[in-house]
Design a protein around this nucleic acid. Sequence first.
RNA 1: GAGCCCGUAGCUCAGUUGGAUAGAGCAACAGAUUUCUAAUCUGUAGGUCGGAGGUUCGAUUCCUCUCGGGCUCGCCA
Length: 497
Amino acid sequence: MNLPEVTVEVPKNAEYGDFSTNAALLLAKSLRQPPFEIAEKIVAEIKKKPQKIFSEISAFKNGFINFKISFEFLQNNLKTILKEKQKYGRNKTGKGKKVLIEFVSANPTGPLHVGHGRWAVIGDDIASLFEACGYKVDREYYVNDRGNQIKLLEKSVKAAANGSPVPEGGYGGSYIKEIADDLKDHKQLLPYILSKQKETLAKLKVIFDSYFSEKTLHDEGLVEDAISRLSSEGHTIREGGALWFKSEAFGDDKNRVLVKENGELTYFAADIAYHINKFKRGYDIIIDIWGADHHGYVPRVKAALAAVGLPIDRFEVIIGQLVTLYRGKEQVKMSKRTGEMVTLDEIISEIGSDAVRFFMTSTSVNNHLDFDLELAKEKKQENPVYYVQYAHARICSILRKSKCKVQSAKLDTLTHEAERALMRKLLDFEDEILAACRKREPHQLINYVKDVAAIFHNFYHQCRVLDNPARLVLVEATRIVIENVLKLLKIEAPEQM
RNA sequence: GAGCCCGUAGCUCAGUUGGAUAGAGCAACAGAUUUCUAAUCUGUAGGUCGGAGGUUCGAUUCCUCUCGGGCUCGCCA
């Protein structure tokens, strides 16, 4: 019988058990029987085989079949957690496959701002998720260290040093003056700005494996190589003095220029070379994280990679919606040209790395993010990050005071409703990591750890833990899971608050 | 005009492959600590899931249309 739509899911309402399946509902039509009767028959079949995972399997009157996990299974999982410790939740799904994640890649023309912060945190989180799932991950930052903007930057800094007005189209931010003051040797301009950016990223604990220079692509002739590769396959055309890539043939809206009329190479041409290079380095999965302001760029890059015959199913672009900065109700305009901007550095100083990381991770990148500086400051004590950290600190305090030996405890007394809810939640951890990785959505982990903390706090108020060995095991297992989530997201798990 | 993202409680947001009574935090109100950290917990109130159709046993979820907001549509980078 062909039943592609049978699903097993976790019901929202705990009364319906830990898992449920709609199999009987789907069979009702073809069998011409009421769903409930079918469900009852299925349940009877399942119960013929002995097993220890489920303590209850029942048919509901609407046709759902509900499964309840046994206490024994949940209790045994606590032992697993204590045994695996930092490794609990990690898995080998990736089998060592290689992943490249490119993110931030801000222009080296000034300090990072709040938007870069979002990509830095999200990219780093996704990289960590892949690592937790057994992939080998490289974090990469592409540096646009060439072209007009760099010349403009140099002119702008020189002008500032001489007290001249901002050059036409140049950069006028106050940071330009600071650079001019700081830097005697203008040849060190790019390394200087890059090192400042690295310092900011390091405050957020974001460390890149490689900084890939656009300039080297040109110096090594890789851009010309890419273009001739396209041309030799007949994918280019000369028109109006420029050389075009016929991207329309690969699903793009229109063709794109590779070599301008004046002979200069476009940024796009370099980007094709860059992405060909990524494939050449042998990655199984290649991920770019771009802001929504660049989403129109996706089809042309994919078109180019398809045109040179690369397996584009290994390449994906995650588009993140933009961040708008507010001070109260007033929007803070961000412009590098006018220099009116709040830097990521300032934001980290104001609310701390933990809060920035937690806040940046907590919402889906599909959603536009309004970041209110005043709110972030006012709510410092109420920020959800403290809620989760407090749960961890509270557990540490209990463990410090307890005199029982945790390891030797018998766990069969853990049958309280609050105990069960907590054990049940801890069991989900590996699935949560897998799902968050598969969907590239680290915010799901934030939701998960908030749930763990809430269920723990509820348990704490109902059950006295000290001097109860079984509960100490439960609490230690909870602590391990919270710590593992926070460590993965590079947020501190404090022992005291 | 075309493309992408979004629209869920007063505010900020979750909501898994289509499932059972749509959730949390903040704000509001009422309570809880002789006991392990009150940065906590419990309860109350708050919803036409932007709107209208469609698909089906079942739609916040999928499809079409529509309204509203953001972003993009360079021989810029």
